[in-house]
């Protein structure tokens, strides 16, 4: 028996919005420690790694490790049926063919359940090596989304450069070029609005706008986003999910031949 109950059911709705355009299907791995999902997009340019800790759920029971292959478009359709204030429970038997989503209104007067067929997926699972990043930038998630959207108008790539002076986002194309520079916040009243930079060495890498814009679908999950960069390593874009976990996106850089 597997059962995971989350009073803040809207978190599941936001998670699906954050992955459904990038991934068509994925396996949800459930165990004692919680729920994880790892999947690459079809082109194998990016990788999504989601982690939801069991202690972040209001109720969590997992008698036996299980892997549930789901079509994320179908799962998204079902979660759209949940109200923003609904309590969401995900339930499955051991060795399941189906998974059940139960939505309860706050006052307990409405309860709906949706059963979805599971898929047998044979997906590659990649080892993500530990690394010390050369630069780690933390900034408001809304600001990052805005910059990615704005600069996408100029070309299909964004160069992210990070130095002691700050972080710079650049794009260029047929209509011209654009640069957005953010300095480290000097005086921060609200932590959520701060820009902070931890730098071991300056870096500058080129990334595809298309994927950065997919990642920013996670913006409603978190006030801040963390961008981590190192030579010979994919960009990591991380959004914390309340006190339950995080979603990390890895993006392979564009490389000069």
């Amino acid at each position: 028996m597997f059962e995971a109950r989350l009073a803040k059911g809207a978190i599941f709705k936001k998670i699906l919005e954050a992955v459904k355009d990038l991934l068509t299907e994925a396996s949800w791995d459930c165990g004692d420690m919680g729920i994880t999902l790892q999947a690459m997009d079809n082109a194998h340019v990016s990788l999504v790694s989601l982690n939801l800790r069991s202690d972040g759920f209001d109720k969590y029971r997992c008698d036996r490790n299980l892997t549930m292959g789901m079509n994320l478009g179908s799962m998204s359709k079902i979660l759209k049926c949940a109200g923003n204030d609904d309590i969401v429970t995900i339930r499955a038997q051991d060795n399941p063919d189906t998974v059940t989503f139960v939505f309860e209104s706050e006052n307990g007067e409405k309860q709906s359940d949706y059963e979805m067929k599971l898929m047998s997926l044979d997906l590659e699972h990649l080892q993500i090596p530990e690394t010390e990043y050369a630069c780690v930038v933390k900034m408001p998630a809304g600001e990052f989304a805005r910059i990615c959207r704005d600069l996408s108008q100029f070309g299909d790539s964004i160069v992210i450069s990070c130095s002691k002076q700050g972080v710079k986002f650049s794009a260029s194309g047929d209509i011209g070029s654009a640069n957005v520079k953010l300095a480290q916040s000097s005086n921060v009243d609200k932590e959520e609005e701060a820009v902070t930079i931890e730098m071991q060495e300056p870096v500058s890498f080129t990334y595809a706008c298309r994927y950065l814009n997919f990642f920013t679908k996670a913006t409603p999950l978190s006030a801040q986003v963390k961008l981590s960069m190192s030579p010979e390593y994919p960009l990591m874009v991380e959004y914390a999910i309340d006190d339950i976990g995080q979603i990390r996106y890895f993006l392979a850089p564009k490389i000069e031949d």
Binding site: L126, P129, I255
Partner: peptide, 14 residues
């Protein structure tokens, strides 16, 4: 133009 690399260039198949 720079070439798009792949995630599997960096992460190893488990």
């Amino acid at each position: 133009a720079p070439r798009q690399s792949s995630i599997s260039d960096f992460f190893i198949n488990r």
